[in-house]
Design a protein around this nucleic acid. Structure first.
Length: 924
RNA sequence: GCGAAAGUGGCGGAAUUGGCAGACGCGCUGGCCUUAGGAGCCAGUGGGCUUAGCCCGUGGGGGUUCGAGUCCCCCCUUUCGCACCA
């Protein structure tokens, strides 16, 4: 037996895997394929623990799939365009190319120590001309296909810097870096028509995606059924509104336009002009989230104009208010204060008419007495032709009142049924340097035309100067700007670049053939590998990235980009069916590894003691805890806080309870103003790792200390993968012990003859373990898979200690166990496999076959319950039937204690199921 | 504010279809061993009690059921997303 010294073999195996191309993935139509994909990282500079946490379990599962007989593709690359590179350029004078490439180099090197089975020959880097040539090419196709267009959108505009800022750069209406004020400004930009696919994007049939993601996308798309209605204004103009409640049209007593609405200027009367201008300017300063907050006091200004309600024929005033968003619907609403809470609040504040048109359960509603809008069901009144129609709670045409209103609108040609989406078209323009150029030029006549495909890519110029303001350096680069139109005339190049979500919308296709130059991807590869079978990544991408990539795939399908791949598939006898409808079949999200800050506030609480509890009327955060406390005083570190109950460490190491009175004064020197109980920090504060908090965990440190396999196993064992949680180096010790034990077991052949009965027990446990590990890997439950292997280690070690295993049994057990270990601890498994005499490589071996018969127990424990509480147990045959179980169960001591003379009222037998003992519940 | 998810020992977390709550690991307690360590081995470890046993226990309150961590209703708390961060 030797000691477990991973440093002595991990690097050796990584070199050999690379040298022999163990992880090269090649098309092989004889074998089933599995495309495992993990979200590509941004090259921020260092491979941190979060990357390990995201990628190591995906790697383990990809390895498992390979052992199960799949030909696995598991590629990796970099999402290399983006703001941080540009910030580095501005702040430190490093060119984004250099910064990004150096980071990529460094991360590639760090990636190696993970020991993952990435096929690096498939690597794709989105900021390389070979990659973004095709991103540009997609833009051209989308434009041709009518999926790209120019439109107007609000941007965060800094007047003083003359530049556009990202949302994250704006804090409280100011540029977070320079403190310069930021306003919302309309700007002409490029869009993709994702809304054209809104309905199809709502379909998730045959997709194995988390419910949370599907809900997030469904809400994001926000389909609502209703009508568009035109309100005429004196003269020819009309304002179109979208409403989900056309039935309440007769109750529309005013209109509200978003401050940015096109017609605001035209509708403003002279005497209102000043007020309106002021209000529009103020609204531009508020963000959309602030504006749509419901508890915000309603504000608005009357334009001075009136529109005609097409139903009642009445003149109704037109206001502007920031609770109406220019980007939703038509940017204008008909206000029905009696039946919409927002409109109601607005009407009460500005003393506008409230006219009910739906009866409440109490009958006709008295407008003057209303304190809130009535949004329930009833019958229509005050509504001319639709009076008396029943109004239900349902939405769209299934509501009789809405159906009647829509018919009336269409008959009178003042409106029509319409579906509106919250989803807006995808704004792809970014006023940045470090992104994929948009391949268009603007001719002298102001029209845009695309750069022909054979001139792609439009390359980013190397020689640029970065402004401290953040303004795109492309604008002042005359070589880049100068272009020639197709007719030979002068033209100006587009200086906006594309949203980086463009690159990540199709990178899964570039991985198939990163060097291919005839198309974005090689149809021969695509035919075999597509679609992505398993996609893993963070849930924060729920709506944007994952919606965009779905849209992209559907657009590609409709533009015929998968035709060649489909042809190849048919030649190979595989039916393409609908596989190009969606990019990824299975999606799973992992959580985040967080940094743990392991100290709570030390507080002094004073008040009155009742029993063991101190009722505190004063709590202050102090420095260190003293050795003892005064009466009616407790001092200690907060270990836990549940609402207003604090648990403090006592000077003697015990725990004390403090109940903080509602009106207690709380003093936290570090936090200004009036402090609350909720601001008190308790032990084990969990937060994101960040350099400023000094809680960043560097994976290299732990690889040096324990080896890559221990870190891998810890990350898979210590967390619910979908949830994440705080990194705890103590927890790694248990995983290290496990691999040390496995090592010791695998390198120490037994010397005794063994005990056949015990050997059978170990074989049974082994097969149970195969099943548990396999299920864990299939279901992304990595922690339970490793727990099963640890439990098996416990049994195996106990058996070996007692000399229960002979050499043959030990070898047979090792043969299986080491293969089970492969996905989790690839280096250790490889080293043990070799020492046990196996052929290179363990990762090319077949996954051990689970045999249910070998896993089956002969006897099981019948659990005897009385009224649902466990009262006794009795050993029975594994296939015990109801009658026998009933007889045995009722005869147990525990059961007899509770069964009176009258006998049991009812007996329920729950037969044994997989992993569960049979049960007998006796009701008395 | 809107939307989504989650809440289980001192800690990370298990619990398959409504069927023994706390697997596995950390920590802790006791013992052993030793070339004394960030070591190893053995045993114990949800809380409580009048301890052959019993009672309580999955954020709080109510309900359905022979049986609820799991299903339903109300409430509280936390985390995540909200369109130019990726």
């Amino acid at each position: 037996m030797s000691e477990y010294r991973p440093a002595e073999f991990e690097e050796k195996w990584r070199e050999r895997w690379e040298r022999e191309g163990v992880y090269r993935s090649k098309v092989d139509w004889e074998r089933p394929k599995h495309y495992a994909l993990t979200m590509l990282p941004y090259p921020s500079g260092d491979l941190h623990l979060g990357h390990w946490f995201a990628m190591v379990p995906s790697d383990a599962r990809a390895r498992f799939k390979r052992m199960k007989g799949f030909n696995v593709l598991f590629p990796m690359g970099f999402d290399a365009f983006g703001l941080p590179a540009e910030n580095a350029a501005i702040q430190r004078g490093i060119h984004p190319w250099k910064w990004t490439y150096e980071n990529i180099e460094n991360m590639r090197r760090q990636f190696r120590s993970m020991g993952a089975m990435f096929d690096w020959e498939r690597e794709a880097v989105s900021c390389t001309p070979e990659f973004y040539r095709w991103t540009e090419w997609f833009f051209n196709r989308f434009l041709e296909g009518g999926l790209a267009y120019r439109g107007e959108a609000l941007v965060n505009w800094s007047e003083s810097l003359q530049t556009v800022l990202a949302n994250e750069q704006v804090i409280d209406g100011k540029d977070e870096r320079t403190g310069q004020p930021v306003v919302q400004k309309l700007m002409s930009q490029w869009f993709f028509r994702i809304t054209q696919y809104a309905d199809e994007l709502l379909e998730f049939d045959e997709m194995d995606w988390p419910e949370a993601i599907r809900k997030a996308q469904t809400n994001w798309i926000g389909r609502s059924e209703g009508a568009r209605v035109a309100f005429t204004i004196e003269g020819e103009t009309s304002i179109e509104v979208f409403t989900t409640r056309p039935d309440t049209l007769w109750g529309a007593t005013f209109m509200v336009l978003a401050p940015e609405h096109d017609l605001v200027d035209q509708l403003t009367s002279e005497d209102q002009r000043e007020q309106i201008a002021e209000y529009v300017a103020a609204a531009a300063k508020a963000s959309e989230i602030e504006r749509s907050a419901e508890d915000r006091e309603k504000t608005g200004v009357f334009t001075g104009s009136y529109a005609q309600n097409p139903a009642s024929g009445e003149k109704i005033p037109i206001w502007i208010a920031d609770y109406v968003m220019v980007g939703y619907g038509t940017g204008a609403i008909m206000a029905v204060p009696a039946h919409d809470q927002r409109d109601f609040e607005f009407a009460r504040k500005f003393d506008l008419e409230v006219r009910p048109v739906i009866t409440s359960p109490e009958g006709v509603v008295d407008a003057a007495a209303m304190t809130e809008a009535y949004v329930g069901a009833g019958a229509m009144f005050n509504s001319g032709p639709i009076d008396g129609t029943r109004c239900t709670d349902s939405k769209g045409r299934s509501n009789p009142a809405i159906a009647a209103a829509i018919e009336w609108l269409e008959d009178h040609e003042v409106g029509r049924e319409a579906i509106n989406y919250r989803l807006r078209d995808w704004l792809i323009s970014r006023q940045r340097y470090w992104g994929c150029p948009i391949p268009v030029v603007r001719r002298a006549d102001g029209e845009y035309e695309t750069v022909p495909d054979d001139s792609l890519p439009v390359e980013l110029p190397q020689d640029v100067e970065f402004m401290p303001t953040g303004r795109s350096p492309l604008k002042s680069n005359s070589d880049f700007m100068a272009a020639v139109a197709k007719d030979g005339g002068p033209a100006e190049r587009e200086t906006d670049t594309m949203d980086t979500f463009m690159c990540s919308s199709w990178y899964q296709y570039r991985y198939l053939s990163p060097g291919y130059d005839g198309a974005p991807f090689d149809p021969e590869e695509a035919a075999y590998w597509l679609p992505v079978d398993t996609y893993t990544g963070g849930a924060e991408h729920a709506t944007m990235h994952l919606l965009y990539t779905r849209f992209f795939t559907k657009a590609m399908r409709d533009l015929g980009m998968f035709e060649d791949a489909a042809t190849v598939m048919r030649q190979r006898g595989r039916d393409p069916g609908r596989i190009f409808d969606e990019p990824m079949v299975v999606l799973r999200n992992q959580g985040q590894v967080l940094g743990g800050e392991r100290s709570g506030d030390v507080v002094r609480a004073t008040g009155s003691t009742v029993g063991n509890v101190l009722h505190a009327d004063r709590v202050e955060v102090v420095g260190d805890a003293p050795a003892s406390c005064e009466p009616d005083e407790m001092v200690g570190e907060i270990m836990r806080r549940t609402e207003n109950i604090l648990t403090l460490t006592a000077p003697d190491g015990g725990l004390m309870t403090v109940e903080v009175e509602p009106d207690a004064s709380i003093d936290i020197p570090g936090i200004d103003g009036v402090n609350s109980v909720g601001q008190l920090r308790h032990h084990l504060e969990v937060q994101r790792m960040s350099k400023s908090k000094g809680n960043v965990v560097n994976p290299d440190v732990w690889v040096d200390r324990h080896g890559a396999d221990v870190l891998r196993a810890y990350l898979m064992f210590g967390f619910d993968w979908a949830k994440g949680g705080p990194f705890d180096s103590g927890g790694m010790q248990g995983v290290a012990r496990w691999l040390q034990d496995v090592w010791a077991i695998g390198t120490t052949p037994p010397t005794g003859p063994g005990d056949p009965e015990q050997e059978a027990m170990i074989e049974r446990r082994l097969h149970q373990t195969i099943e548990q590990v396999e299920r864990g890997l299939e279901e992304f439950s990595f922690n339970t898979a490793i727990a099963a292997l640890m439990a098996f280690r416990n049994d195996l070690r106990a058996a070996l200690r007692e000399d229960h295993l002979g050499d043959d049994a030990w070898r047979a057990t090792m043969d299986v166990m080491v293969r089970l270990l492969g996905p989790f601890a690839p280096h250790t498994a490889e080293e043990l496999w070799e020492r046990l005499g196996g052929d290179f490589s363990v990762h090319a071996q077949e996954w051990p076959a689970y045999d249910p018969e070998k896993a089956a127990e002969d006897t099981v424990t019948l659990v005897v319950l009385v009224n649902g509480k466990v009262r006794d147990r009795v050993d029975v045959a594994a296939d015990v039937g109801q009658d026998e179980a009933r007889t045995l169960g009722l005869a147990t001591e525990g059961a007899r204690r509770y069964i009176g003379d009258s006998g049991p009222r009812k007996v329920i037998f729950i037969p044994a199921r997989k992993g569960q003992e049979p049960k007998l519940n006796i009701v008395v």
